[in-house]
Design a protein around this nucleic acid. Sequence first.
DNA 1: CTGGATCCGGGAAGATACTG
DNA 2: CAGTATCTTCCCGGATCCAG
Lengths: 216, 216
Amino acid sequence: MRSYGQFCSMARALDLVGDRWTLLIVRELLTQGPCRFSDLRRGLPGIASNLLADRLREMEEAALITRHEEPPPVAATLIGLTGRGRDLGGVVGELTRWGAPLMTNPPHDDAFRMHWFALPLRHLCRAGSPGEPAVTVRFGDLYDGCDVIADNGRIDVRPPSARRRVDATVTAPPQVLVALFTAQTSLAAAQDQGLAVDGSAAAFERLLPSEGHTDA
Amino acid sequence: MRSYGQFCSMARALDLVGDRWTLLIVRELLTQGPCRFSDLRRGLPGIASNLLADRLREMEEAALITRHEEPPPVAATLIGLTGRGRDLGGVVGELTRWGAPLMTNPPHDDAFRMHWFALPLRHLCRAGSPGEPAVTVRFGDLYDGCDVIADNGRIDVRPPSARRRVDATVTAPPQVLVALFTAQTSLAAAQDQGLAVDGSAAAFERLLPSEGHTDA
DNA sequence: CTGGATCCGGGAAGATACTG
DNA sequence: CAGTATCTTCCCGGATCCAG
């Protein structure tokens, strides 16, 4: 990106991360952990491969990411965030929060990946009190999803792991998930609209926002 | 800007504010209050007038800003943020914070406006304890600056006002100001490098970060 | 298959001049 | 003061091709 040429903290930040796609790449690496080139392409539908390669080169020069070879039999290059890259979590979080009201508009023909909900879910799930038993719920699946762990009054959202035992697995059309977790819709209505819980329904309900917060 | 076409909160946010210059326009309006077209040009050195007009049109469509005519004898159009536009303060703040380490590099031939320091100064000035007397210090001047008000253990930074009585007025080369408020430099050294305080030196020193926080 | 590189068309950004 | 008009430049997007 062309520099703004301004001696200003924010302008200099945008000189590094203001390019198209750059912050979305950070979103992917934050929510998915270290990724391969092809993982990033799957998580960034619409990006051209040359653009992704360009961005990764620039981000490596700016010390936002690092690459390291995995030993055989994997033999792939893993791309991960540096500390400085991970520090962009605050920026990503604020953008995500500011954009939340825009999610009430239907998806039309937008692409969707379940793991994009990882960041919003951290704040939309009901943390509960420290006394309540811990639950683990998978949204989506191993190849595109996230695991929500509610424990000790805290919500933790992590990339899905095959080694993790989950109490329930949830799938749903994205707009149904939005409506349910913003308390615009009841669980029963969500199930009518395609939400399905495999495993402990109680574990999933444990994450829903409390009744008192509905807009109605 | 072309839409990313992703049903994701952050991607939809960037569809609206990810364009070049957009967030810098928000910075201007946040730190300066409602501005005229020519005020924005002065605060955004490097922007082409047609681009500024384009961005303002798009931001008005997105309901981030509003325009209202001032009655004579002013007879100018004032551009101000809507509530939704002001909500971008969190995004602007996080970008500013993340970019702070980049300010240690010298300005070279970067442009500079004193009011760009308004956002960083809110966190760099020592708030002090509620017991200490209130002080008001102007950085820069009425046409490009900001007023820092330390009162009751809180720091408030506002656009400069002719109606405000100030205890001191400070001018300095920007990199000297950065070094001083990040405790990389002593006050005496800063004065050697061009920092000048008009009025109460004690009022200004009251804002400096406490000694215990220096890196040395 | 992964991880790109290359080429090309269209459109956004940038520079400058001009106007009601 | 607050833009518009015009021209140029360059980035982005899409397709294709290629080496390990």
